[in-house]
């Protein structure tokens, strides 16, 4: 056997002993209280229900909706495509894995936006990026997207367009199980919107 290998062995053992006796390095990725305070003041973490719906309809792969309500609430009704992480398991390891994924926009929602904002603050403090809160929560989402008042024909184009968008999204999520009368009544504005949509394409794109 090559004698020099003994020196290599000793070197390796010494390096190993060094690792063995060195104290474990602590990593603190939490953000500073000042930065947290500034971030809490910044309303840009709130995303509106329409923005989220638009991204859901377009099957945006970078969007991840996280339902922070309890599992039973999640099972009774949730926004399609959302995953359930109740607030009490927000610090679990499997959650950290999801939060650490830099390619995803993580959007929390709860019934309103109190619980979801709590989840946001916890994760913000842990230093995670690309996290948001669905403004108004699932209630607002239900009221704007699922329950949708038919605007009068005299309303501005934007309102009718928004209605059309929400209507379409609702049908996209829950199928076309609406009554026939509702369908007929919106047949007329639908045509008008197709034309206007092209004209105001830029602003619609910017808004969503």
């Amino acid at each position: 056997m090559n004698k020099n290998y003994i020196f290599l062995t000793i070197l390796a053992v010494v390096i190993g002993l060094g690792i063995l006796i060195m104290p474990e390095t602590k990593h603190d990725n939490q953000i500073k209280p000042v930065d947290l305070l500034i971030a809490i003041d910044d309303p840009s973490r709130f995303l509106s229900t329409d923005v989220i719906t638009d991204r859901l309809v377009k099957k945006d792969p970078t969007l991840l909706l996280i339902d922070v309500r309890t599992a039973s609430q999640f099972n009774s009704f949730s926004i399609p495509g959302a995953i359930n992480i109740p607030l009490d398991s927000i610090l679990a390891r499997s959650t950290a894995e999801i939060m650490g994924n830099k390619d995803l926009d993580k959007v929390f929602y709860s019934n309103a936006d109190v619980t979801s904002d709590q989840a946001w603050i916890i994760n913000k403090r842990l230093g995670y990026k690309a996290i948001y809160v669905l403004q108004g929560g699932v209630n607002k989402w239900f009221n704007t997207i699922v329950i949708n008042e038919i605007p009068a024909d005299t309303e501005p184009v934007e309102i009718i367009e928004l209605y059309q968008f929400r209507k379409g999204a609702c049908q996209y999520f829950f199928g076309n199980n609406e009554t026939g009368s509702v369908k007929e009544s919106n047949a007329a504005p639908k045509k008008a919107v197709v034309i206007t949509k092209k004209a105001t394409g830029a602003s619609a794109g910017g808004g969503c």
């Binding site: 053992v13 190993g16 002993l17 690792i19 063995l20 390891r93 499997s94 950290a96 894995e97 650490g100």
Partner: peptide, 24 residues
């Protein structure tokens, strides 16, 4: 999915002990 799990955590060892054992 166990996330970015570390082998020494799973075995209940400290990082240093596991690294030392690996070298040995």
């Amino acid at each position: 999915n166990l996330g970015g799990a570390m082998i020494y955590d799973m075995l209940g060892l400290s990082k240093g002990v596991f690294a030392f054992l690996l070298i040995i």
